Amino acid sequence: MNLERLEKLIGGDRQTVKGCNLSADEAAAVAHGKFAQHSFCLVQDWTILDLETTDEELNVLRSRGLKPVLIYALHVVHDSRGRFSTGDWVRSSFQQSYDDDGFFLTKNTVYVLLGDGNRQQITARDFLSLQ
């Protein structure tokens, strides 16, 4: 990743997005009740990443019921399956759905986006370099 792109990724070209305004305990209860068949992960300091894709990549994702959108969070508050420890960072798999109350659904997990976060575009190459 070149330094100009890294600076853009870290410091600019993003919009503020409202997330879930519930406490962590309240959000966990809602996630468990509303999405009982999924595990959930409460996160803070998050960014919704819209991946730039080719038409072919987009068609493959759509055929699987997915969108080229992921979550990158710097702070895990709680993971219902214990996959991540408090304070870990996490990135999701591709989005299945998202509602404006801060619930981001992938095939297996609901990411509860606590507080405000960001949304920005990123190339797949740059995204992979964040790991």
Rank of each mutant, 00 (worst) to 15 (best):
Y111M: 03
C20G: 06
G82K: 00
A27R: 06
A28Q: 05
L105I: 11
N118R: 11
K107T: 14
S93L: 01
D45M: 04
G33A: 15
W46I: 03
T123Q: 07
K67G: 05
L61V: 04
L9F: 14
V110T: 03
T86F: 01
T16R: 14
R64S: 12
T47R: 11
G19C: 01
E52W: 13
H38L: 15
L9E: 12
Q121H: 15
L66I: 02
R119Q: 12
Q121S: 15
R91I: 10
Y111S: 04
T123Y: 08
F103Q: 09
E56N: 08
L9S: 07
F84Q: 00
I122W: 09
S63R: 05
S92P: 03
D100C: 01
A27Y: 07
E4R: 04
Q44V: 02
A29Y: 03
C41T: 09
D79F: 01
A28H: 06
L6T: 02
I48S: 02
V43D: 01
K34R: 15
A28L: 04
F84K: 00
G82L: 01
R5P: 01
Y111C: 03
N21S: 11
G117T: 03
I48D: 07
G102K: 02
L9P: 01
L42H: 13
C20M: 03
Q120H: 12
